[in-house]
Simulated assay, not measured.
Amino acid sequence: MSEDGGLFLLLLGPTGGAGLYWLLYRYYRNTDKSHAFEHETDVVAQPVTGADQDRKIREIKGTRATSISGNNVRAYRARVQQMQGDS
Score class of each variant (00 low, 15 high):
R26M: 08
K33D: 13
A78I: 05
Q82C: 08
D32V: 06
V48I: 15
Q84A: 11
E40N: 03
A65M: 07
G17F: 14
V73K: 02
G50W: 06
E38R: 02
R26C: 04
S69K: 02
G6N: 12
V80T: 09
H39Q: 08
L9I: 11
Y25M: 07
V73Y: 12
T63E: 07
L24H: 13
I57K: 12
G70F: 05
A45Q: 13
S87R: 07
L10M: 08
I57Y: 09
I68Y: 07
K33M: 10
T15M: 09
P47A: 01
H35M: 09
R64P: 00
T41L: 13
L23G: 00
L10I: 02
R79C: 07
R74E: 14
Q46C: 07
K61R: 11
N72Q: 11
L9A: 09
W22P: 00
Q46M: 11
Y76D: 11
H35N: 05
R55A: 12
L9F: 15
T31W: 10
N71Q: 15
H39K: 15
G70E: 05
D52E: 15
D4L: 12
V48H: 02
G62D: 06
Q46F: 06
E59F: 07
L10Q: 03
I60S: 03
Q84V: 14
P14C: 05
N72R: 03
E38M: 01
Y28C: 07
Y25S: 14
G50D: 01
G70N: 01
V80S: 01
